[in-house]
Simulated assay, not measured.
Amino acid sequence: MNGELAALIALCLHGNDWLATGTGRAPDLDTANSAFRYVERVHVTCPQRRMLRSRKWEADGVADWLRFVNDSGARRLSLVVGSAQPSDLPDPLAASFANGGRWALVDDAPTPHLWQSHWAVHDRNRTDQRIWAVQLTGSPLGQSWLAQPAPSSAQEDLRAALDAIRGFAEGDDDIADWATWFTEALRLLDASEPVIPYYPDLAPEGLPRESRQLLAAAVKSWVFGGMGSWNDLAYSDAARKAEYDQRTAELYRSVLAALFAVTRGPLSIRV
């Protein structure tokens, strides 16, 4: 799973769990959650307008950020995706690079904020592997968002995409091992006690089972990495490459739709 996206999902799900009441201690996800296991620090900034002047609010850590979101009047965060940007790379490939995804969070404050993250290597020699510094930047959302129709069934859409791409993998002896991978993702869609791969604490314990199934399957379905991943395949046969590109794009869209469904993010924005 893309670490940047996983971190946003953790912020959204655990953040919403805390924002429901806004009381008690805000979760220190950057020090305690597996989605931040390679993060050294999270720095947050957001412009604030007070009467006729503006100033920049800034703080360190997820807990301070959540308190700021709560104090702004927000009670919910949503995962969103930006509109397409000119690029030589399709989204599944672009997402394999640092800061290559077009994801963000939006809060529902009276004056909503768009929250975008930027990851930069700060100290690659750290023995604990916490090499990343994350900048979380808030900006006024304004009226630039667009409604995104919810899929009729995120679970069935993901199931169909997994079935199709598994069939494609089964038809090629060189990549038959990927069929097992996709079979495991399909199994998680129906698991009675689904465990989220790589990030078992990505969601709070109270997440309903159907949502946890969908989240676990979506995380397992994320094959859009770098060298050695599904993205690393190449075909000289034009017909085979066309089907590979089609199945890859279908899976990518279905995985994102599943994540939107789990986080209940009904918006798509232009960023």
Rank of each mutant, 00 (worst) to 15 (best):
Y199V: 04
W57D: 01
R253H: 02
A109Q: 00
P90N: 10
N70P: 06
L256D: 06
R124L: 15
L13G: 05
L146S: 12
P27K: 03
A94P: 02
P151C: 15
L189A: 06
A84C: 08
Q213E: 01
C46I: 02
S221H: 04
D64M: 09
Y38R: 10
H122Q: 09
H122E: 13
V223R: 02
Q85R: 13
D201S: 05
A179M: 15
D107K: 07
S87K: 12
G82M: 12
P266V: 02
V62W: 07
G15V: 14
C12S: 05
A35D: 03
T248W: 02
I9S: 09
E250I: 08
S83T: 13
W57F: 02
D107L: 07
R67L: 05
Q116D: 13
P90T: 10
P27S: 00
L79V: 01
R247H: 15
T127S: 14
L8P: 01
G167L: 06
A242F: 10
E243R: 15
E184F: 03
W132V: 07
K220E: 01
S34Q: 01
G138H: 13
A242C: 06
L214C: 15
W119P: 01
V80A: 06
R55A: 13
A95F: 07
A104H: 14
H122Y: 12
A32Q: 13
C12F: 07
T21R: 13
Q135G: 06
R67E: 07
W145R: 14
D163P: 04
A95S: 13
T263W: 14
N231W: 09
R240K: 06
G228L: 03
Y199K: 02
L114S: 03
V219R: 00
L214R: 11
Q155F: 13
Q143Y: 05
N70R: 14
H118A: 12
D174I: 04
P86T: 03
V121C: 06
R166F: 03
W115R: 10
F36W: 11
N125E: 05
F36A: 04
F97I: 11
R247K: 12
T183W: 02
Q129H: 12
P194V: 01
D17I: 04
P47H: 00
R124A: 15
L66A: 09
C12Y: 08
A239Q: 12
V271A: 10
L8M: 03
L89D: 13
S83R: 08
E193W: 08
A95N: 09
T180G: 11
A176E: 06
D88K: 14
N2A: 04
R126N: 11
L136A: 10
D71P: 00
W132T: 05
R166N: 04
Q246N: 15
Q143F: 04
A179G: 10
G100D: 01
R67I: 03
G138F: 12
A147I: 11
A234P: 00
P266H: 03
A133W: 14
L162A: 00
Y235R: 08
L267E: 09
W119H: 08
L29S: 09
A239S: 10
S72N: 08
A191F: 04
D108C: 07
R159A: 01
A234C: 00
